[in-house]
């Protein structure tokens, strides 16, 4: 296992490198120019490009960037004059992470409960209610749900604040809004997955053995049906942690999402690269964790791998 993890880490670094390289050249292909402004003269433009080292050949710029990256320096923003990408990330990431983790936690807990409930009581009223909630949650994108929640609870009823991030009550609305889609997704997936599991023979065996309903659910059903959720959670965690533009801008939370979206719009090359690299790190790590979890959650998978190795060993 440790060997596997080490191997995966090396591959992860390599993957990141590929990603960064691709983005580095891809953003340069975008139409437009970061320094272009109706009021900026050509001489000033040229001067700005020289200042940021953009007048050198692209390959040279690329290696310079890589060199800095190895030192942990993501470079300086082209639009936010003087600001380093590192400091931007350091300042905004805590907010995004806070918001994201809370939302994920809520979505996971509530989603699992609702999904399990729906599957256990399939065909009954509770099932339909859970499914309905899930459907609405998935049909409505974050900007609608976020706006609705804000309108009802903050503006009309005045029971919760309409924005900023200064205390627990400030977190309620954005966290709920953000968790909705994930919650709905997890509910549906869990229900679907568990329904399959419920009909399996080993469940019947477990019940016949005399295990209590709770034990059957907890030890057998959940564990076997959670795999699709683990699959989906990986990239979801990465995405949510690195900022969600819509919710953050709607609730005035100073997180990373804004930079991720606007830097592409503004053609702030270093910021785009920095954000993407940061996001990529999370993504790759999340996938690594997911793959490891596969092995833990479902013994069949591990078995299959080692069995395959044994087969290969025999053939080789």
């Amino acid at each position: 296992m440790p060997k596997y993890i080490l191997k995966r880490c090396i591959i992860a670094v390599f993957t990141l490198l590929v990603l960064i390289t691709i983005i580095f050249f891809l953003v340069r292909l975008l139409p437009g120019d970061p320094f272009n402004d109706p009021k900026v003269t050509d001489e000033v433009r040229a001067r700005l490009e020289a200042y940021y080292g953009m007048d050198k050949p692209l390959i040279q710029q690329y290696f310079a960037y890589l060199g800095n990256l190895l030192k942990g320096d993501f470079g300086v923003s082209l639009i936010y004059t003087g600001r380093s990408v590192n400091s931007t990330i350091a300042q905004t990431f805590p907010y995004s992470a806070d918001l994201g983790l809370r939302a994920l936690g809520l979505a996971l807990v509530v989603g699992l409960i609702l999904g399990t409930l729906a599957a256990q009581k399939a065909g009954r009223v509770i099932d339909y209610v859970c499914v309905l909630v899930a459907i609405i949650g998935v049909s409505m994108p974050d900007f609608i749900i976020g706006a609705l929640l804000k309108l009802i609870f903050a503006i009309k009823l005045r029971v919760l604040p309409a924005g900023l991030w200064n205390g627990f009550s400030y977190t309620i609305l954005p966290v709920v809004a953000l968790s909705f889609y994930t919650l709905a997704l997890i509910t549906r997936l869990m229900r679907s997955s568990m329904l399959e599991v419920i009909h399996q023979d080993y469940i019947l065996t477990a019940k016949a053995k005399g295990l209590s309903n709770f034990q059957v659910i907890w030890r057998h059903q959940i564990r076997n049906s959670i795999l699709p959720i683990v699959t989906v959670m990986g990239p979801l965690v990465a995405a949510v942690l690195t900022g969600t533009f819509v919710i953050e801008s709607m609730y005035a939370i100073p997180g990373m999402g804004k930079f991720y979206v606007e830097s592409v719009h503004d053609l702030d090359y270093t910021m785009v690269l920095g954000m993407t690299a940061f996001y990529g790190i999370f993504l790759v790590s999340a996938n690594l964790v997911v793959d490891i979890l596969y092995g833990i959650v479902d013994p069949r998978i591990k078995l299959a791998e080692s069995k395959q190795k044994a087969d290969d060993g025999e053939e080789g």
Binding site: L30, G32, D33
Partner: peptide
């Protein structure tokens, strides 16, 4: 087109 592209095109 994107804003930056529009500036260039103009």
């Amino acid at each position: 087109v994107t804003y930056r592209a529009m500036l260039d095109d103009r």
